[in-house]
Computed example of a mutant assay.
Amino acid sequence: MNMRLDIVVSDIVGLTGTKIISAFIGGENSGEKLAGHRHYNCRKLEGEIAKALQYNGRDDYFFALKQEWETYLHLQRQIIEVDGQIKEHLEEVIDNDDTKKQHIVDKKPHKRKNKNTIRDLDMAQISYQYFEGVDLMAIEDVNDATIMAIISEIGLEGIKKFGSSKQFTLGSGWPRTTKSVGEKY
């Protein structure tokens, strides 16, 4: 369609891209008017965006874009539903365990959140309670996604089922794939 949104915005489903795609599907096909949907944080100027958005009138491509956009929006709604279920489950686990409920984490400096994290969920507090006083967010580079991966991998027993930090990091009791020189299995 001669629409090169991908070269003027770094994330086509970010704030600017979403507004432009929605306006285009809504019937606006003027590059200048579409560029007016530029978010102030966008690095490209409106003129550059307008040049990249010159629609060539291909209705077949427009139809395909519309179908793909509707699919994308449907999947985003499903992700929100799954996130809600995860949040509900984590809160239920904590609410049903007085030992977990008693732990309150100290407020930390803000860690940047990825746009794909569960909205309206304080993962620092949830993980602190879930792991009964172990502050995983105090570890550099640990974020919401890392904590969700740990919770999903080690389950409700949490890190307490490991005798030491070495066992946790090596996966004690799990088959090892390498052996030291002279070591027998």
Rank of each mutant, 00 (worst) to 15 (best):
D83N: 15
K101C: 03
M148W: 00
V93W: 00
T16M: 03
G158N: 02
K184G: 06
F168L: 15
K166N: 07
D122E: 06
Q54C: 08
G182R: 12
H37R: 11
F63M: 11
R119G: 08
D6L: 05
E32T: 13
A138W: 01
I126F: 01
H103G: 02
V142H: 03
S30L: 07
D59S: 13
I12Y: 03
I94N: 00
D83Y: 07
K160L: 05
Y40Q: 12
L121T: 11
K111L: 11
G57A: 08
V9P: 02
K108C: 03
W174A: 13
K87V: 06
K111Q: 10
L75M: 14
V181T: 07
L65H: 03
G163E: 10
K101D: 00
I151G: 02
T177L: 01
K100P: 01
R112L: 07
Y185D: 13
Q67K: 14
H39T: 08
E48R: 12
Q76A: 12
I118P: 00
K66S: 13
P109K: 13
Q85H: 06
A35T: 09
S127E: 05
F62H: 12
Q85E: 10
D144L: 00
D120L: 11
T71D: 05
Y72V: 14
Y130G: 08
D83S: 09
H74P: 00
E92W: 03
L121W: 05
H103A: 04
V8T: 06
V8S: 01
K111V: 14
N29T: 13
Q67T: 12
R119F: 04
K107H: 04
L90K: 08
V105N: 01
D95V: 11
V93K: 09
P109S: 13
A145T: 15
E88G: 03
D83E: 14
D98S: 15
R58V: 11
K115Q: 07
Y185I: 13
G171E: 05
F62Y: 15
N143D: 15
R112V: 14
D135A: 12
L156C: 02
K184N: 09
F63K: 14
G163P: 10
K161S: 09
E153F: 05
F162G: 00
I147D: 00
D59G: 10
M3S: 03
D120W: 03
M3T: 08
H39N: 15
A64V: 14
G57I: 12
D6Q: 10
A50F: 03
